[in-house]
Design a protein around this nucleic acid. Structure first.
Lengths: 340, 340
DNA sequence: CTGAAAGCGCTAACAT
DNA sequence: ATGTTAGCGCTTTCAG
């Protein structure tokens, strides 16, 4: 069943049918439009947009690349992207790379081959396949970065937060409430967000005149397991620690569990600060104090920007920074500290 | 840049180029293949699979419909699907319906228009648009159900668990450990999994000779908020309750938080049983006893089945049931109960 | 308002 | 082994 069949059945040309399935406001009398629509409904014809796409060189499809949807940070972001896409009639390809540059390249190639209209990418690492990279750049396909910057696409716009200031704000709170020996479970070593948050951590220490100790910052993954293992292993060696700053709420989840098992009261003996404010954070025990970023909005806004890039709207090539805010719950102490 | 350009540059016909970009084992000498590959690499040509797809009527794309990726149950499932898809060279369209039949229909139509090779669907509700429904059925496009059954696609295969037996197993554990007044926060009323789990709940009560109380089963959503609100509101009215069976771990998350705030010791005064075993269950406080279903595997297996449907492999039209297992952690009491 | 026809980029026989 | 050609289903001028 194709456009020709419909044309024949109604007794018009395929051009006319094409106009109605594309909601062309003009060029079709209401009467023929109605007849065509009726036949389409009767036979249950569904136009082949693939075929249309090759003619108009637009697919109404965008691709999204993230490390892992199982990382609790991403579902909200993905949902933001998807909502915006769907509201504008776009479909969304979802891809998980596990931060593997190889997988990322496989997906990127698939996106290009399937001619997506734009790409949203939360990436890390540098592409090996420079030919692919060059093809992507030359193609001029719109790319918008999500949350992380990367050298391969340094010239591309993105939606970010100021990780440095956000971390500074969080750690300052820790310090304000009397903490001075602050462990920092930082996240992956060579990721943009990690290094920025580290800068914020350092800045807060510096301003409070607390000496920076390199052995207080530990790199790892954005997983609860990492938070758990690190605390279990390290804390006995650092009994003086009075706070831990988890580089992501997912990490804090594990930290809290370890502390609970070790029967260390939070926040009385050790304060715990998270980062992200994933949906789960308020349900932890104790509810997690965390630096909140607008996860859903970042996704939604990035998708909006991508669409405006696709439409070549002016200003769509500029990055944007979203605001963050400290959410005080019960894993850190209240009010002003006593030692500062 | 298209296949013709490459053909001209190398001095061969587009047919030959087509053979090499499709890895045709035969029909092209190693020497020309090398020359073509070299040129492709040099100019960074990326074939347009869309165009190919309309010729071969295959898109190497599948569509997945779920209620909401933000529901902690789904990320793992989606990841299972996506891994299988990617391993087989398929791309994945992700769609969230919020259980809205209207959205589901929009997505389904988009899938059909974009000619996906198959559809994976976790659905509820009956489609309004019967024309669309009929078109889908007539098209013969492979559909595999995920976790939930639905009347619209009653004849389609799917990957499920035995929700009734699983719930029976869980509730029996509660009873074995001495609970008799078991509140059941069931989940959405007219969803297949809810009604099945209710049957299991009833069966366990029946066998233990515990009278069934209709007011002990409360319907709601699969959210922590629902679990939280329900407990806060209801428990004061039912002081005799000694256990709550949450129809999903996401619900249990809220239950635990409410109980904590009400300073009701778990499991000493009230046991809490979850269902699903989402990744965070073990990080809750106390770690949640739950009926585990193999979430990732359900997704992966469903995708495998869909692909074998696409390939018309024999037996691919049969549903499969995955096993469940009770995971005892610390939100329920140990061993045999004292009152049974 | 409507029809005819030339593509869009690629595949798949069928020739050579 | 390679070239030729007729589609795949739709869009879009350009006439009428």
């Amino acid at each position: 069943m194709n456009i020709n069949d419909i044309a024949h059945m109604v007794g018009v040309s395929k051009g006319t049918v094409s106009r109605v399935i594309n909601n062309s406001k003009t060029g079709v009398s209401e009467e023929t439009r109605a007849r065509i629509l009726k036949t389409i409904e009767e036979v249950g014809y569904i136009p082949n947009r693939m075929a249309g796409s090759i003619a108009i060189a637009k697919t109404k499809t965008i691709g999204l690349i993230i490390p892992d949807i199982q990382n609790l940070f991403f579902p909200q972001m993905v949902r933001g992207v998807e909502n915006c896409a769907m509201e504008n009639g776009y479909s969304l390809f979802l891809c998980n790379t596990d931060s593997s540059i190889r997988k990322q390249e496989i997906y990127l190639r698939a996106f290009m081959e399937k001619r997506v209209d734009g790409i949203l990418i939360n990436t890390c690492g540098v592409m090996q396949d420079r030919t692919l990279w060059k093809s992507i750049c030359q193609s001029g396909i719109p790319i918008v970065l999500l949350d992380r910057k990367t050298s391969d696409f340094a010239d591309k716009p993105g939606i970010f937060i100021d990780n440095r200031e956000a971390a500074y704000m969080g750690v300052s709170h820790l310090i304000d409430t009397g903490c001075r020996k602050i462990l920092f479970l930082c996240g992956p070593k060579d990721v943009f967000t990690s290094s920025e948050r580290l800068k914020g951590y350092c800045k807060a220490l510096h301003i409070a005149d607390i000496p920076y100790r390199e052995d207080y910052v530990i790199y790892g993954t954005h997983t609860a397991q990492y938070g758990y293992d690190t605390i279990k292993e390290l804390l006995p060696r650092y009994p003086e620690v009075d706070a831990v700053f988890a580089g992501a709420d997912t990490i804090a989840v594990g930290v809290l569990k370890a502390l609970r098992e070790m029967e260390i009261p939070v926040p009385d003996q050790i304060s715990v600060l998270g980062f992200d404010n994933i949906m789960f954070s308020e349900f932890l025990s104790p509810p997690l104090t965390t630096v909140a970023q607008p996860i859903y909005d970042i996704g939604y806004r990035a998708a909006e920007k991508l669409l405006s890039c696709i439409r070549h709207e002016p200003g769509s090539d500029k990055s944007e920074y979203m605001g963050t805010v400290l959410i005080q719950r019960e894993s850190t102490r209240k009010g002003r500290g006593d030692e500062t």
